[in-house]
Amino acid sequence: MQHTWNFASVFAYWDVLLIGLWGTVYLFVLTCVIGLAGGLVVGMLRYSKNGWISYPARLYVEVFRNTPVLVQIIWFFFALPVVIGVEVSAFMAAFLGITLNTIAFSAEVFRGGIQSIEREQWEAGKAIGMSYAKTMRRIILPQALKRMLPPLTSRGIEVFKMSTLASVVAYPETLQQAKLIASYEYNPIEAYTVVAIMFFLVLLPMVQLTYLLERRFGKSD
C-alpha cells in the first residue's frame, strides 16, 4: 500500500502546534535556568569539606541521577498530592521532575569542572593572599566554566528533548499537541514526522555548537 503524504492536514492546525511549541520553550527555559542555577549551588555543596553538607548533596544527586525522569514526573503528579493533600498541576509535575533532575546532572558537571582545575591554581591564589571564596570566584570558576561549557550545552539539548515527557501528564507541549492533531485527523505519520523535524531543526544548531565548543574548550586549553 502506497501512503499518500498529506502534510496540509497538520499545517492546518499550525495554531495548535504553536501553542505546543510555546509550551515546550516555556518549560525548557524555566527548567534549564533554575536547573543550572540549582546545579551550581548543589555542586558547590557537594564539593564542601564538611560531611554534613556534602553528604546530603551527594545523596540528592545520586537519587535523581539514578531514577528515570518519567518516574519522577509521575511521582510528583500522582503521588505527591497524596502526601501534601493538594492537587499538583501537569506543568508543576513536569517542571519539578525535569528541574530536580537537571540540578542533579549539572551539579556533577560543576563539581567535575571545579575538580579538573589543578591544585596549583588554588595554591597560587592562596599564595597571593586570596580567601577560599575569592580564589573560587576569581581564579577557579572562570577556568572551570570554560571546561564545563560543552557538557552543559549537551545537557541543555537533553533537557529540551526531555520536555516531551510532559505530554505523559497531558501538559500541552509540542508532542502533546501533535497527539491531539493525530487523533482528530488520523494522520499520525504526518503529525509525528512534523514534530520530529521541528525538534531536529531547533536542536541541530545546538549540536553544532557543542561540537564547536568541544573543539575550542575540550581537554586541552
Partner: peptide, 16 residues
C-alpha cells in the same frame, strides 16, 4: 536520532 526526543521517535515507530 540525537536531536529528536525519544518519545517522538517511539510514537513515530509505533503509530506512523
Amino acid at each position: 536520532f540525537r536531536t529528536t526526543p525519544p518519545l517522538v521517535q517511539l510514537f513515530w515507530f509505533f503509530f506512523a
